[in-house]
Simulated assay, not measured.
Amino acid sequence: MDTTALTVEPSKWEFRDVMGRFASGVTVITTHEDGRDYGAAASAVSSLSDEPPMLLICLNVASSTAQAIGRSGRFAVNVLAEDSGPLAQHFASKSPDKFGSVTFERGQGDCPLLAGSIAQFECVVEDQVRGGTHLVFLARVLGVSSQPGNPLAYFRGSFGRMETAPDAAALHAVRDYVVNSVSDASTELDADRIAAALELEPSRVFLSLVALSSEGLVRRSGATFEVEPVPDQVIYDYYAAKLAIEIGAAAQTVGHVTPEQLVELRRLMEATLEFVDGEEFVDPEGWIRSNAAFHEYLVGLAESVILTETYKGLRLPALELRTIRRASTKASVKLLEDHSAIVAGYESGDLEGVLRTLAAHAKRPQETRAAVAAAS
């Protein structure tokens, strides 16, 4: 087939202009050869194979880093974080001493591993070819590491932030699984087992666990994850977020709801009463379901899908099961009194009273845990 008849070959400048519209991540390729460190910023990095793990990189033939890699046969790929634009500029320059002001550790073959990178690949060259002005190195990956964070992007000649949409459904499902796995002893999490149980791809589970390690729900060591008893402060942070959403909803709705909505709000509040008998919760799980229905309805009065979904996304019922499985009489009475006061405030249009009660209500989990600890 004669491809010359299909199109006219673009000029160098046309090609660069069009390629500039392709956003890519930014890395620093490093190597060590004969007692000297080399490094260059590069965006031409690509996965080649996962069995065995291999990748390829492209560097200009005139690059001293490319020439050093050709001699040493080793290099490291440092994937830069979104705030590393100055570091990328530094390694894109022709500075004679690129490592003098840079923090790094030594990897395999003494290749520099730059501090603050969100991912690193340590590689050994298996083959190299020349393509026009560049050398292409095909390499086997000997080691990898990663840290939470967003990547630095390169687009139209500028560095910037690469926005990624999180897989909310997977994250919510894994968060629920993790919280329900919490016990009085540390437990190692098996990503493959979680993926099978939730019918999710293992890669989505892994990314969700990485995100949960940033939240403090999971402790991470490399590719291993462990869930420990949820720290009190993590629980209180969730309740602080809950309070912020409920205050926003109340500010929009108190004094502006229909009689029918007030009747339903009171019905949901009274439905929580059947799960408390005297001095204890007789059915903690039933209470939590009923309590969640009451609070979600309250937030839903604002008629904002985004607000309601954000509230549900906190996944508070699973945490509450561990917070109030056994509560003192005082704690139980206060929870019920709060609900009654909130409904009364809605019925009378008393916004200040509702906001005051919501603030006190948000502190009940902390009071409950303190009461349980004192009793034990």
Rank of each mutant, 00 (worst) to 15 (best):
S213K: 14
T368I: 15
D97C: 03
L138D: 00
V333K: 14
V141I: 14
V372D: 08
I247Q: 04
G132M: 04
A88P: 01
D34W: 05
L59A: 02
E246A: 11
E188G: 09
E188N: 06
R220M: 10
V102Q: 08
G255Q: 04
L198V: 03
V343P: 13
A42M: 15
E228G: 07
Y177G: 06
E246T: 09
A42V: 15
L6Y: 12
T133Y: 00
A76I: 07
A88I: 02
L48K: 02
L171N: 10
E296A: 05
L55W: 07
A359R: 15
R220P: 08
D37S: 11
R267I: 06
P317Y: 01
R36M: 04
T31D: 01
Q67I: 00
L358K: 05
P166L: 12
P53W: 02
T329H: 07
A115D: 08
P96Q: 10
G300E: 04
D184N: 03
M162G: 04
I235V: 13
S340Q: 10
N150F: 01
L316K: 01
R219D: 14
I29R: 00
T7N: 11
G222V: 10
H90N: 14
A371H: 14
R220L: 04
S181N: 11
Q67Y: 02
A293I: 01
E9K: 12
